[in-house]
Nucleic acid binder design. Structure first.
Lengths: 180, 180
DNA sequence: CCCGGACGTTCCAACTGTGACATGTCGAAA
DNA sequence: TTTCGACATGTCACAGTTGGAACGTCCGGG
């Protein structure tokens, strides 16, 4: 039913939660794990933010407590209103890219510290890319992929991460040469 | 002198401003233009945020009013304390990557809308990459590059943007094939 | 002369995000 | 049996971010 009308900016944590609950019901604790692991390359969230958002989503009727477990565990499930909101966001809302790349920002100002320091920093970025790339490759091997939706689209995201890391590594190597 | 001790997170707008003022003195209005144009691929800032930060930086003694012009224009220049802070941040502070990619988040959940919608979305991402890539190439041609630091490092950042956009385009084309 | 658009700054309310703190339960191993 | 680590949630203050409204000035073209 009634969808929130405004949602000018932000709000994506909300949809990340809805998307994960669309897979299957989970507790806040479970969700937090997902954000720390699989989602860590895509969207960051802290514990306080997450539990806060769960409260808001429940109040908005987009998720509901589906089961309770030991230690006060509350498993949330997505409601029909939540599914509607998720689909709406997926296809109808224009993504707003907020560019904020701290590493690149530093590169912009690297002139202030002299070429040897600059070179160090660029090499560091390249090394970071290399490590990240390796880590993702390991991750890919460690997962046994199925042919369900979660696997298919999860693989796309993972591949994006690999290509991104490789790009960063190659760019950094090129950049070091430019500085010399 | 005395540098702020804590600065756990965020704070990068401060350094972006310091970095731009390191080039040469500018007013808030000039800075805003830079954020809208050259910096738009690296760091976003709104007008309110920017003027607020200028006030804080002045209070902290890292910038000072260097000249005043018509219409209440205030040109700010970086101080020695500000230069020290900038150099400190550039080489000594570990960058904290906050991953938050809304487009990729959507890809993660694309299973919820069926393959034809998913395909549309991925094609849209590819198209975005292509456009962005073209726009950056035009930008590169339109600038007459020197061999000063700002040109050298500005080119590195621009090249990063081009490679990123190309990567996104190629990935999206590959991704469309995977979904089929 | 007047008018619109660019120039230029200031303030604000609301929201989002962060790290820390507080609180408590359960299960397994020592 | 005690104790420790994992499980599990809630709340706080503070800083950063957003979008907008408000205000006034300069300058060139009609």
């Amino acid at each position: 039913m009634s969808r929130v009308e405004c949602q000018t900016g932000g709000m994506s944590l909300r949809h990340a939660v809805l998307g994960l609950l669309e897979e299957h019901p989970m507790s806040g604790y479970d969700l937090l794990k997902r954000f720390e692991q699989a989602m860590s390359n895509v969207w960051a969230a802290t514990q306080s933010q997450l539990y806060g958002e769960l409260g808001k989503l429940e109040a908005a009727g987009q998720i509901r407590v589906h089961a309770e477990g030991p230690r006060g565990r509350k498993e949330y499930a997505i409601t029909e209103a939540g599914q509607a909101e998720l689909r709406h966001w997926l296809v109808e809302v224009e993504p707003n890219r907020v560019t904020r790349n701290e590493s690149l920002l530093r590169v912009y100002f690297l002139g202030a510290v002299g070429p040897e320091r600059a070179r160090e920093y660029l090499e560091h970025l390249g090394e970071t890319g290399r490590r990240r790339s390796g880590r993702l490759a390991d991750l890919e091997d460690s997962i046994d992929w199925g042919d369900d939706d979660a696997s298919v689209y999860g693989r796309l995201v993972l591949e994006w991460g690999k290509r991104f890391s490789e790009m960063q590594r190659e760019w950094a190597e090129w950049a070091v040469k430019q500085v010399e």
